[in-house]
């Protein structure tokens, strides 16, 4: 057995994805992306609209498979062609839309019960047991939102920020091999976004979670995370980690973008700037 540490948490090998193939709208959303995510990496993936960030997350989550020839390995397990629900064994996910990550009709504790069983076989045990309830309270308390006292409230009665915070706990309550954050604060108002982002940072550091966070927002990408990956036209064009990542500034990013993308700033890249503002 090779040392567990040396197996990347996730490997994308030559992953491409083409949408609307053989039509006028054909788009190469991912173009031969190879990316290793090591255990403990906290990656911010940045890129403009249509750069392939979301497609990248969807392929990892198993929403659709990559084109033939590409491979997705999670802890050396080939999950390339497995359905989405089987990827869930390894992957925790927080979606952009708070209503996607949680079930409005179910209560907080029922939602969390769905989450603790991620990747496990569901049986005929009581879904919300006493011991689970205790662990739910412990998991919710650090959020500081008082959700631990409202376990039997339907999730539909929570605010967007509360639902997104709950989503985060649901994605991490059983430690995923990789946590996928899909612009998970983009749909929130600035103040709530800030709170949820801080909570995310706290949970990722506290539990030492391997995370891949997609964002539009350059400030978020610079402030958080230990590694930064920039996507452009379906390719990874920039990948820095450690001290180099920590020292990055917005002008650095713009320069890197110009150099690596090999073109002057055009419409889609200005989108990046305005989103950072």
């Amino acid at each position: 057995m090779p040392d567990d540490k040396h197996i990347p948490a996730l490997r994308m090998v030559d992953v491409s994805k083409i949408f609307a193939r053989k039509t006028l709208d054909e788009v190469k959303a991912l173009d031969g992306v190879s990316l290793d995510i090591n255990e403990g990496d906290y990656i911010c993936m940045i890129g403009s609209n249509g750069s392939g960030k979301s497609t990248c997350l969807n392929v990892i989550a198993g929403v659709f498979p990559p084109e033939r020839g590409g491979k997705i390995l999670i802890k050396d397990n080939d999950v390339t062609n497995l359905p989405e629900y089987q990827h869930a064994k390894y992957v925790g996910r927080v979606w952009q839309d708070p209503s996607v990550g949680t079930c409005a009709r179910l209560t907080i504790e029922e939602n969390l019960s769905m989450a603790v069983l991620r990747g496990r076989t569901r049986g005929l045990h009581k879904a919300v047991s006493k011991s689970r309830r205790t662990s739910f309270k412990e998991a919710l308390e650090p959020l500081g939102m008082g959700l631990e006292n409202r376990l039997t409230a339907p999730v539909g009665t929570l605010s967007g920020g509360q639902r997104q915070a709950l989503s985060l706990i649901m994605a991490t309550i059983t430690r995923p091999v990789v946590l996928l954050l899909d612009e998970h604060v983009a749909a929130l108002d600035p103040k709530t976004a800030q709170i949820v982002m801080e909570l995310t940072d706290m949970v990722v550091h506290r539990d030492n979670i391997t995370a891949l966070m997609v964002t539009h927002n350059m400030e978020i990408a610079l402030r958080y995370g230990s590694r930064l990956v920039m996507m452009h036209k379906g390719k990874c064009i920039f990948d820095v980690a450690g001290a180099r990542k920590a020292g990055l500034t917005i002008p650095d990013l713009m320069k890197a973008f110009e150099k690596e993308a090999g073109e002057m700033l055009h419409d889609d890249s200005t989108l990046l700037v305005s989103a950072a503002g």
Partner: peptide
């Protein structure tokens, strides 16, 4: 209620 979430939690809808 939410098929996407159910698949994300590893259940076969």
């Amino acid at each position: 209620n939410n098929e996407q979430m159910v698949r994300g939690m590893g259940a076969d809808t």
